[in-house]
């Protein structure tokens, strides 16, 4: 799930410039041959574990077919996406198991 706005706490809450979406699409295509976007946009809220503040966002939901042994490559791309999209974390669900991917430090 990739929010359509930058994080308000670490950034300015503004929409991403279109080039960021292009970057993500190209990354997913190069690594995994493509993706599917779920219809519509997902309104959600998550609780920031550091601040305890609930954060509302609206996201695009990407569905990517990834062999089990290559999930780490997806995690790495999403860690880079955290920086590119200025997010504290990006929600990833692998076979029903939820992870929050943070930027590389």
């Amino acid at each position: 799930m990739v929010p359509i706005r930058r994080d308000k706490e670490i950034s300015d809450g503004k929409l991403h410039p279109e080039r960021k979406w292009r970057w993500l699409n190209e990354g997913l295509f190069e690594l995994f041959g493509g993706h599917t976007l779920a219809p519509g946009f997902y309104q959600g809220q998550w609780l920031n574990p550091k601040s305890g503040v609930p954060i509302a966002d609206e996201s695009r939901k990407y569905i990517v077919a990834v062999p089990r042994k290559r999930v780490d490559e997806l995690r790495q791309l999403l860690a880079e996406a955290c920086t590119a999209f200025q997010q504290q974390a990006i929600y990833l669900s692998v076979a029903g198991h939820v992870e929050l991917i943070e930027a590389n430090t």
């Binding site: 359509i4 503004k14 929409l15 991403h16 410039p17 279109e18 080039r19 960021k20 979406w21 292009r22 699409n25 190209e26 295509f29 190069e30 041959g33 946009f41």
Partner: peptide, 29 residues
């Protein structure tokens, strides 16, 4: 795949996508 990304058609399609996203208020220039 990398060569496909670099084709004019891939890049133009990405651009058309960007324009739609801007039209629909979900991204920006």
């Amino acid at each position: 795949r990398r060569q496909t990304i670099e084709t004019a058609i891939f890049q133009i399609a990405q651009d058309l996508s960007s324009r739609l996203g801007i039209d629909q208020g979900k991204t920006r220039r």
